[in-house]
């Protein structure tokens, strides 16, 4: 950038991306830190708040849009990626973030997750995974361990947990990372990279639910940085992700897939030209 064109203002701080609304979350919820990490990532990139849209579905973490100073869209359960896809394709000039939880993204929204990965529209999807439905007070989600006891599934579901990172990779996500809410600076760095990376970027954030999964407080002792750099080889990334302990943090895969082809192109014709094919 030419220095003469540089903005005369100071770069924005994370606070510039926060709204004045008080989150509804429980004290100690990991989502507070993820919100903080998102605002730090936006500040790191110094994006103009009104040119950023944060889209979500339903759940505790899906409340994030209104807690930012960006344009927000809080839609229905499970359909955040669909709404965000429409928004980004219609408005490629915007930076579009999608936030949500494991139930919203992997269960009711599971089909959209697969197709958002393979479509590779330039979105950044931040999932706060706490292996539980918190807003409805403690039911098992697709990432819940099969033996986790709950009122809805006494003795556990007996159903194996879903592996979002492998699914994302197999479905074609162009950027795959794992972060931990207890490390907001590291999470901010990963989210900033995810926003900059072209195509569909997926960031799974381990974000404890201290109310219904208090044992997740121990995650802070389990997490550790991934021992190797991100790869651009999906097969290698898949092997690493499938064989790690589930607590490797950092960017795990950075792909080079071609971007989505269906964005609007400049008009070649006017509406009046379209009716020629009907004329007798």
């Amino acid at each position: 950038m030419d220095l003469a064109e540089a903005p005369a203002r100071a770069p924005r701080t994370a606070a510039a991306y926060k709204s004045s609304y008080k989150p509804i979350w429980c004290p100690g919820c990991g989502d507070f830190s993820v919100l903080s990490a998102i605002t730090k990532a936006l500040a790191k990139l110094d994006l103009t708040p009104e040119n950023v849209a944060v889209v979500s579905g339903i759940g505790c973490s899906s409340r994030i849009p209104a807690y930012t100073s960006c344009y927000g869209f809080h839609g229905v359960h499970g359909r955040a990626l669909a709404a965000a896809t429409g928004l980004k394709v219609a408005r490629p000039d915007l930076t579009v973030l999608v936030t949500g939880g494991d139930g919203d993204g992997y269960s009711i929204g599971g089909n959209h997750f697969l197709h958002a990965c393979r479509r590779n529209v330039d979105l950044t999807y931040v999932v706060m995974d706490n292996h539980v439905y918190g807003m409805t007070k403690g039911q098992p989600s697709p990432t819940t361990e099969p033996d986790w006891d709950s009122k809805l599934s006494p003795g556990g579901t007996g159903v194996r947990a879903f592996h979002p990172l492998v699914i994302a990779l197999a479905s074609g996500a162009n950027f795959v990372a794992r972060a931990f809410s207890g490390d907001p600076n590291g999470t901010a760095e990963v989210i900033a990279q995810a926003i900059v990376h072209p195509g569909f970027s997926f960031v799974e954030v381990l974000s404890p639910c201290v109310t219904f999964r208090p044992e997740q407080r121990d995650w802070k002792d389990a997490v550790h940085p991934a021992p190797v750099e991100a790869t651009d080889d999906p097969a290698r990334a898949a092997r690493r992700i499938m064989t790690d302990d589930g607590f490797n943090l950092g960017v795990l895969y950075k792909g080079n897939r071609a971007p989505y082809k269906g964005y609007p192109a400049p008009a070649r014709a006017g509406v009046a030209d379209l009716e020629k094919e009907f004329e007798l």
Binding site: R79, A82, G86
Partner: peptide, 17 residues
């Protein structure tokens, strides 16, 4: 879209834009 749930939410998102 991948299904009609996606179609309608995509157009809501685009129109929001």
């Amino acid at each position: 879209a991948e299904d009609e749930l996606a179609s309608v939410n995509m157009i809501v998102g685009a129109s929001y834009g």
